[in-house]
Amino acid sequence: MLNINKLYVKINKKIIIKNLNLKIKKNNIHILMGPNGSGKSTLSYVITGKPKYKIINGKIIFNKKKINNLLPNKISKLGIFLTFQYPIEINGITMYSFLKNLIKKKKNKLKIIKKNLKKLKINKEYLKRYFNVGFSGGEKKKNEILQMLILKPKFIILDEIDSGLDIDTLNLIFKIIKEYLFLNKNSSLLIITHNTNIINYINASFIHILYNGKIILTSNKIKKTINYINKYGYNNIKNIKLL
């Protein structure tokens, strides 16, 4: 599904990602962890085509198509979706008038939106509020998942969807995500997180550790890797192989 090959990324003259390789097959869940500032969000931005994130070398292939130089809205249309670590606010635009842009069908827009609101236990009064304006941290994250349900993407990057959520919301969101993957069998997921409890919420097939813009470890032994991080932090992660 996604294949990143020898990727180098530069922002403002600074190289943030160095020689990164990542392969994610369809119907797969991968976890990406790494210290603050290691380049996790940067990676999610490059995949989704954010301007100013310059690819100076390497390739990003999605379903056999090179997407390096595509416009972000075109990448989105291919079925790549990102839940933002810090979702933005748009003053003056109601949730409804924003969300209806995400639905291609002419009819029943409201019905589709309401159905998904219900799943997320969001009051429909929120449709009248301005997009994310005054929303709590958790409400903003729910709004991200709401848009995921509406857009039905094939490849989903969750950038710290689990930061700052209460336990019930956390359970609800992962329940919805798992349900989504069950219904959309070909979809894949890349979970960026700092949460070492992640394995209690979802079963992944691989974990990658990003350190200083490089993936220094890829493993299918998720539990073991996370336990190691819990104990020793990221600094000695290279030694994990010795265990």
Partner: peptide
């Protein structure tokens, strides 16, 4: 730009 990119990411040109 952040707002525009956010919309772009949702498929809005």
């Amino acid at each position: 730009d952040e707002q525009i990119f956010y919309c772009n990411q949702r498929g809005i040109n």
